[in-house]
């Protein structure tokens, strides 16, 4: 499997990348680690005519203390997330979930921004972002805007990012000492989740946010579970609602009934581990 012919532009800066996107419009695709895009290109499921390579923009690879949040450059690799002492202390679910993506070689190259911008409902990191109540910074021709995680994922492999916008930063509210859990269920370690559940207990009495992996067309927060918990429901009672509002896919790994069941089991496990 070979990608279709494509032009290649290396962006020297974020602004140059945005300019290139503006110039080429829908025909252009940003290339970061490439671990979401290149497999699609090899099967010719994606056939951009121009690739704008932002992989060398070193100034978009960082993990910084932003006061009440951790600021992560969009080009930070999964490996860097996984091994970050800062994340392990203040947003541990992000470090842990990064360690669950793909395999080590994939984690060396794949980036947080690439994973989030791909918007795959079966990906791990979008769920961690949602459960963390994080946000992303999008930069376009008209400047920057902040998109809350809950508004980022708009459809199957679609996000709120405009065609000429570049994700530059991911912000994760600090959850130092708060309970958290990520339950990923798959058949092989390297695979995407059949179903996953991420839970982060907010330190400030906001309740617990629960996000689901592969339970619909987009990465999603489970509002049913969240509301039940806010209303004082037990973990078991809240988890029983985990499939509400979902539209799980059917494939060789399971039908909707099985995925719904898994969601309830995994959310219960996540809530138990997160101490909710």
């Amino acid at each position: 499997m070979i990608p279709a012919p494509v032009d290649y532009v290396e962006a020297e800066s974020a602004d140059a990348a945005i300019a290139a996107l503006t110039q080429h419009g829908d025909e252009a695709k940003l290339l970061a680690g490439g671990h979401s895009l290149i497999p699609l290109m090899k099967f010719r499921l994606a056939t951009p005519t121009v690739l704008v390579d932002i992989g060398r923009l070193g100034d978009l690879s960082y993990i910084n203390d932003g006061g009440d949040h951790i600021a992560i450059g969009a080009l930070t690799t999964h490996r860097a997330l996984e091994t970050s002492a800062l994340l392990q202390a203040d947003a541990p679910i992000m470090a842990h979930v990064a360690s669950q993506v793909g395999d080590p070689s994939v984690r060396h190259r794949g980036t947080l921004g690439g994973s989030l911008a791909h918007g795959d409902p079966a990906s791990d990191l979008p769920a961690a972002l949602l459960a963390s109540g994080g946000s992303v910074v999008a930069k376009g021709p008209n400047g920057e805007r902040v998109i809350p995680a809950s508004e980022l994922f708009t459809g199957f492999l679609e996000t709120a990012l405009a065609a000429d916008e570049l994700m530059t930063e991911v912000r994760i509210p600090k959850a130092t000492g708060a309970g958290w859990s990520y339950q990923k269920f798959n058949r092989r370690a390297q695979d995407w989740a059949i179903v996953g559940a991420a839970a982060v207990a907010s330190g400030n009495g906001d309740g617990t946010r629960v996000a689901l992996v592969n339970m619909g067309p987009t990465p999603m927060l489970s509002s049913a579970v969240g509301s039940a918990l806010s209303g004082g429901a037990s973990a078991a009672d809240a988890a029983a609602l985990a499939a509400e509002g979902t539209s799980p896919p059917e494939d060789l790994n399971g039908d909707a009934e099985y995925r719904s069941h898994l969601a309830r089991v995994l959310v219960k496990r996540a809530l138990d581990e997160a101490g909710s």
């Binding site: 269920f185 058949r187 059949i194 060789l252 790994n253 399971g254 039908d255 099985y258 069941h261």
Partner: peptide
Amino acid sequence: ATPARVWK
């Protein structure tokens, strides 16, 4: 014996 099959 997939998980789905076993569970069902």
